[in-house]
Design a protein around this nucleic acid. Structure first.
Lengths: 353, 353
DNA sequence: CTGAAAGCGCTAACAT
DNA sequence: ATGTTAGCGCTTTCAG
């Protein structure tokens, strides 16, 4: 059975294509009898509008690209889910095309040029390697919003949380717990991302505010953003005699790796070492001990990003808007509340931005 | 700057659209001088072919839908990554549209009807709720391959691992470790999926082969497929006096929850209770203790599925082919090798299907 | 080897 | 309120 087209329905019902189109779109100006007649033809023929034809005519595909390093990173898969929910909630009917850049500059370039092909109406991109300048040059006239604290040209919209502030809050929380030797774990050994850079800046700020030691030894880098590499790196640091009683982790992956390295060496968490992760991924609540973590408000992030992107798609052409969304420090067992008064209920304890 | 079209290039180069098209497609029958001239025009104008126009003309979008319950489940995000790599590797140039069904029948229906609209060339679907019959009826003429052990009509292609056999292997491995009271954890309390059903069948088979007790008490169900719910369920079972020394988990999420429940009660793993998960997600190697797990060969699964889908898209119209791909039992600390001879190197230890 | 023209299925002016 | 018609950007016979 060949596909049935708008035209076929029109003939079958003995009306023009325009009328069928009106019925399909529930256009107001259609008489009831007409609507019925056409609807019958549609049902009889089993007509389904063809998205491609429509899109060629309207210039809209109803597709948005969401591009980031790797879906396997829990932060990104949770973000994808959030964006897709937010898109559904707006009723705009947008669907998501997921693109992975592998965190490489080639990957980021590929994603930008591929999306120019008119397949998508706009793009949400979390860059990490490309320079601001290249992003600005390459995206051409594709409506785009940048996600995260990576490079961002002033001409392009961007939404992120205040990473420096959040890292400071996390570090100071450890200080509140009486920790004096606080290490940072999980930044890239080479080619440090702006994400890591900002979190380290905030970490240092926290230490300085509390008059705690800032030492290079307390910066534990990893080969890759995986819990496995973090476990190795933290283990190696411990084994070569680096001592710390608090750990601010670049992300929950690093934190989970750190937990393992500490467990292996019978170091008690949080008694000997308190640990704070970042991203508040789903697993954070079921590690042992459960993980305190910086929780970006990804729901707000998704909503704000989609709103801005929608405006760009509608034709808004102003200068780039840079938006900040809030975060919380979710306190769990690995770095609990400092004072009973700080938070009565650990499971829900938060310090807002 | 407005988009530059094939037409513009043709005019700029002073040739016909057909010639430009030939150059774009590296058609053999084009003189070298012509090719150069056109290529220059393409470069000067910065022409990028429009995917939608092409699709309308060819009937192909180069888009494949990958639909499953929820990207946040690590098995699925890892699968998505694998499929997208496999698609890239074939050079077919397919890109992936991710669709989430939320594991509900409405979600599955929505995904099937949305894809009918001609936006995608084919679909990879991991169903869980829909009946075989409904799948067969609804997918219409959309090329489709089913993933996993869910419902699958005989008329549709499907690829999966042998869940019953894998569960038996896992259960027998625990028996090899001398475990005699082996429980199963993580199936849905209500509306049990075929996935859970098959794994439980294999588990029972394993127990029976070894003459071990098969008791309803040893079936620990959960409210949802999350590590959090699994931790609660296992904790509750322990607290009401259920005793076991081995745990076959429906998936790694359940296993991670189980680890937490056991830790909380100071039960030693694997000494008191050995644990085997399922899916071999990335975290399995950095939990504490690290997790033994059934590892489906997702790479093969992705490849086989894409191959079959490609054939369907090419027009193959035979009866549904049901393919089985292999799996391994990856042995780590939570349920190590039974005998020194079984596997010298724990980290890489496997028992193949 | 290259050009002209007819669609692919739908939308949206513009008419009536 | 309904019909006509000209595209949207590309591919693809069919001629030349």
């Amino acid at each position: 059975m060949a596909r049935v087209r708008l035209q076929d329905v029109a003939e079958h019902a003995g009306v023009s294509m325009k009328t069928v189109s009106n019925v399909v779109h529930s256009h107001p100006n259609v008489s009831e009898s007409m609507r019925e007649r056409v609807q019958r033809a549609i049902d009889e023929l089993g007509y389904r509008p063809n998205a491609i034809g429509r899109r060629l005519a309207t210039g809209r595909t109803g597709l948005l690209a969401l591009a980031f390093a790797d879906v396997r990173l829990p932060y990104f898969s949770e973000l994808a889910n959030e964006v897709s929910k937010a898109a559904a909630a707006t009723g705009s009917g947008y669907r998501l095309l997921l693109e992975e850049t592998e965190g490489t500059i080639e990957g980021e370039r590929a994603v930008l040029s591929a999306s120019e092909a008119g397949l998508v109406d706009g793009m949400l991109l979390q860059p990490s390697q490309m320079s601001s300048r290249e992003i600005a040059e390459r995206h051409g006239d594709l409506p785009m919003v940048l996600l995260g604290e990576g490079p961002a040209p002033l001409t392009v919209d961007r939404v992120m949380i205040d990473n420096v502030a959040a890292a400071t809050v996390a570090t100071e929380h450890l200080a509140n717990l009486g920790r004096t030797r606080i290490a940072f774990v999980g930044h890239e050994k080479s080619a440090m991302s702006s994400t890591s850079r900002q979190r380290i800046m905030g970490y240092q700020e926290g230490l300085e505010r509390r008059g705690l030691p800032v030492e290079h030894d307390l910066l534990i880098d990893t080969n890759a953003i995986t819990s496995h590499d973090a476990a190795l790196a933290v283990g190696a640091a411990l084994d070569r005699g680096v001592r710390f009683d608090g750990l601010v982790c670049r992300d929950d992956l690093a934190a989970i790796g750190a937990l393992r390295a500490l467990h292996e060496r019978n170091i008690s968490i949080p008694d000997d070492v308190a640990v704070i992760g970042w991203d508040n991924i789903a697993f954070a609540s079921t590690t042992f001990p459960s993980l305190s973590s910086v929780a970006p408000n990804t729901q707000a992030l998704a909503r704000v990003a989609l709103d801005m992107l929608a405006e760009r798609i509608e034709g808004f052409d102003g200068i780039g808007r840079h938006r900040i969304v809030d975060f919380e420090l979710v306190l769990r067992e690995s770095a609990p509340a400092a004072f009973p008064t700080e938070e009565p209920d650990l499971a829900a304890a938060t310090v807002s931005a």
